[in-house]
Design a protein around this nucleic acid. Sequence first.
DNA 1: CATTAATCAACAGGATTGATTTATTGACAA
DNA 2: TTGTCAATAAATCAATCCTGTTGATTAATG
Lengths: 368, 368
Amino acid sequence: MPNDLTPWIDLSWNERQILSLVRRRGPLPRAALAQTTGLSPQAITNLTRNLIRNGFLDAGAVVRGKVGQPSTPLSLAPDGAQFLGLKIGRRLVELALVDFVGRVKIHRQEIYGHPTPDRVLTFARNGIATILGSLPPDARIAGLGVATPFRLWDWGSEMAGWHGFDLAGRLAEDLPFPVFLENDASTACAAELIFGRSALPRDFVHLYVAHFAGGGVVLDGRLRVGPRRNAGALGSMPIPGGRQLLDCASVSTLEARLGRSLPPDDSGWQVPPDTEGRWIAEAGDALAFVALSAVALLDIPVVVIDGAIPRPTRAALVEATRAAMARLPAAGIDRPEIIEGSLARSARILGAAALPLAHFFEPGGALT
Amino acid sequence: MPNDLTPWIDLSWNERQILSLVRRRGPLPRAALAQTTGLSPQAITNLTRNLIRNGFLDAGAVVRGKVGQPSTPLSLAPDGAQFLGLKIGRRLVELALVDFVGRVKIHRQEIYGHPTPDRVLTFARNGIATILGSLPPDARIAGLGVATPFRLWDWGSEMAGWHGFDLAGRLAEDLPFPVFLENDASTACAAELIFGRSALPRDFVHLYVAHFAGGGVVLDGRLRVGPRRNAGALGSMPIPGGRQLLDCASVSTLEARLGRSLPPDDSGWQVPPDTEGRWIAEAGDALAFVALSAVALLDIPVVVIDGAIPRPTRAALVEATRAAMARLPAAGIDRPEIIEGSLARSARILGAAALPLAHFFEPGGALT
DNA sequence: CATTAATCAACAGGATTGATTTATTGACAA
DNA sequence: TTGTCAATAAATCAATCCTGTTGATTAATG
């Protein structure tokens, strides 16, 4: 448990549950918290008193107009804690400071031909030092989360330096807070879970289409990482034709057909409609297949599709997936609702920052 | 919570954890329990004192021969609780009384052409009445579990009576203990989890090949049922060729090719080797495909294959699945270990009985 | 006599219960 | 219209309970 570094955060399970509820449902009065948690009003009084005293909750203006004593909704204190997120991409490395309610306060990025350990480490260290220097000394930084594709060395010989390189360990060396590292597609899922706009159920599968396709699985409101931290490897799911999801539903596939790279932001996304259309159709088939597999396996009611792609492209992809889903045999199961994610390109970096948040503030993050 | 009926069982989370550990690892001394649960020795003393007083644990003979005070291993009390299991099959309905350590104490069965609600209800009610009558009045029956295929009405017009029929509710009407109902393939998985011989990890997928193929998913040591109780619907998983797993890996498929039904026990299983061989090859392909899907989605290290089939057939099926697994693309994931189940035909009825057991005695079964 | 198992006695933390305080709406009488 | 009061709901206070921990103690063995 990397908690010696952050003695100011040591929340009990019930305190985490309260914060999690307020994060998901918005400002809530104490009575509502008692109702939904099943705890006694007195317990809620005690717990929220601590959370307010420690700066994690704010009491809002009293709400009048109903019978009985007016209620005082409690909301998350935006400065209750802050989180650093580092995202390593194929063309772009990003660093962000995110506050307790999910707003990006500082953002820096750097473009490269391909990422190397040295380059990333230097960018991150310099960036973090600069950010920390610009912050008041009492800024409460809970940790750093890193979102990175796994097996970077598989991308080509120029990436061999990543083999055996312990990025999280190296970053943690000189930082006064813990470092967490997760697959970038999983962090995109975590971001939707923690910061997402959509009202999502407690169980969903998240598909993220970026340079490669990946995903995440949320069960009972918690991101599943698996015993070998490799759950949600949706890109590796087998699909018909002896292929895997990432062979179809990846931007890299589109780039290969295009014969050129697409830029790391939406502005320069110029793809001939027929090329894009064919890619979307095939990707939709593959996405529907893995989505339905997940439903059969886990009884998932909702599948979220997001990606580092323009919104119209994403919308078309969702439409294509819905259509393909309707064509697949589904005897014995209910086809899931397929919805668009709410975070698009920012999902991975937000999710990186969500890693320390989940660790310290979500029920079951760790510790008690 | 159907617990008003069984006031004599009201175990705390830690008490359940102790029983669960002893069930899985065999007789354990208190010191080992303290070690593995993380609780203090004193807490273990208090908890086990209660469990022994209430008849759930037995103190064994002290173990000498090591340095220090000899230890007294604690084991499950066989009569700590008993469970009824009802299994509805295509040709056979079974009823069993299972004790706290998983031994079948009483077993009755009835063969029919096809199951109807009336027939099953009558068999179950008569059987339960007889069993209860034969038992001393202080036999501690915790509940009845029912293992049944879902969507029985899809099997043909003669099964229409099952549509909308609330079997669990009807059975519960005149029983002094709660009734639990689950998909039969899921109960087979539950049986392997609770009563299985094999040392299984905390996460595994269970594939059960019976009249139809089905399965179950165990995550963090708990059977996943899903928000609509339809998790582990592995038979409905899509496989290449626009089909579902149950189209290939079901005994019904073999029967269709054979042109006749196979008997509900291993003794009359006579299938020409080449017919069986072809079926096994195709089923192995399909099983490997869904197994690998599960691994990619959930990071599962072990896949268990079992079924209501003779052991040599099961062994060949596992071998075929291993071979097919090796042929599938697995970039980015680790192929799982594929092992045989330990319960074969008895898995479903044992799993039915395991439902009330899990509810009352496993951590997280329900309640506190 | 070091070592390990198990228990005793005192205590601590986090919850519950039941009584109490506070602030409001809505009904009704003046 | 306005003043009064019952009903309602939010929140807290005070006492208690339950379940665990800690630290000292006893027991049995190589």
